[in-house]
Amino acid sequence: MIVLEQKKFQEIEKMTTGYNRLLVLGCETCAAMSFAGGQRQVAELASAIRVARKTTGEQGEVLEEAIARQCEPEFVDLIKDEVSGCDAVLSLACGAGVQMLAERFQDKVVLPGCNTTFLGVTEELGVWSERCAGCGNCILDKTAGLCPIARCSKQLLNGPCGGSMNGKCEISKDVDCVWQLIIDRLTRLNRLEMLEEIFPVKDWSPAGHGGPRKMVREDLKS
């Protein structure tokens, strides 16, 4: 999923100042699972904004709403009426959601309430870590299901560097050396010979280095 982090309250407060009717809009998929922009966080943040506004004497109404996904036009269009009645929308979705709102509601101010951090997993409640860099050419079949692009600090493709010590990366003792993990896992699977295959220089063009990416499926397109 896309992991998000809510922005600092002061930043949100400053950003939303002056918009009389403000709609705080949650996203019930990744943002909710990141505990940054689901319905519950919308209620908390809207309440905090209302309290802060009364402290500063700012007038206006803070509305609350959450939709299933802000990255899909079908869901975004469901809240057309609510959006038209407000001065600005504070989106608690990822960057994609915020931009989808901006596209669908051309004449409306759309503000980001979250920072989009990475594509990752929930390790445990409250702990998320990066797993995928979206490089556009998956090699997990060759690396025992562990990604050196997302999880090696140097994005090395042919084994660990000299900075790998006791299974940890040289940048921090809290970061696992993914190549150590790959070797350990391949050993367990009895497939260590897979590492004899040399990775050629990686083509980064599908990773966004060839400009903004777009995918079209003619069979699905209307």
Partner: peptide
């Protein structure tokens, strides 16, 4: 923390 930031 939030209450502190809101000024209450």
């Amino acid at each position: 923390k939030l209450l502190e930031e809101t000024g209450l």
